[in-house]
């Protein structure tokens, strides 16, 4: 199984769901992006479930300088207050022991 690398975006401010959606939409247009997941603390406004986004994980086919440049351009547009980029693997890509026990995928 090929383990695809992930690029983590860590914005210096907690961004709203709307801004995160814009970034996600922008990124998923590219073929080399296979998955985009977001994570952050939840907020309850007017009894609606909502959340803020503190981490964005972009799974890519292959990590290279062109890919990073495209991702940086998108981030510069939507995150003017700054961000960190890190390369690695941040989300689960195969079953773990507890997933077998709980019969989750």
């Amino acid at each position: 199984m090929k383990i695809r690398p992930e690029i983590q975006i860590f914005p210096f401010k907690l961004i709203s769901k709307e801004t995160a959606d814009k970034i996600t939409d922008e990124l998923t247009r590219f073929d080399f992006v296979t998955n985009v997941s977001v994570h952050g603390p939840s907020v309850n406004s007017n009894e609606n479930e909502n959340y803020m986004v503190g981490w964005i994980w972009i799974e890519v086919e292959d990590n290279n300088e062109d890919v990073q440049k495209i991702i940086k351009d998108v981030c510069d547009e939507f995150l003017p207050f700054g961000y960190n980029i890190e390369l690695g693997r941040f989300t689960k890509y195969k079953k773990g022991v507890s997933d077998y026990i709980n019969e989750r995928v």
Binding site: P11, F12, K13, L14, I15, S16, T19, P41, S42, V43, N44, S45, N46, M52, G54, F81
Partner: peptide, 19 residues
């Protein structure tokens, strides 16, 4: 009360889970 050490939001406001 959680939120004093979290990043600020886009408007520079401290995080508040209850808004």
């Amino acid at each position: 009360v959680h939120g004093h050490a979290l990043r600020l939001d886009e408007n520079g406001i401290m995080f508040d889970a209850m808004q």
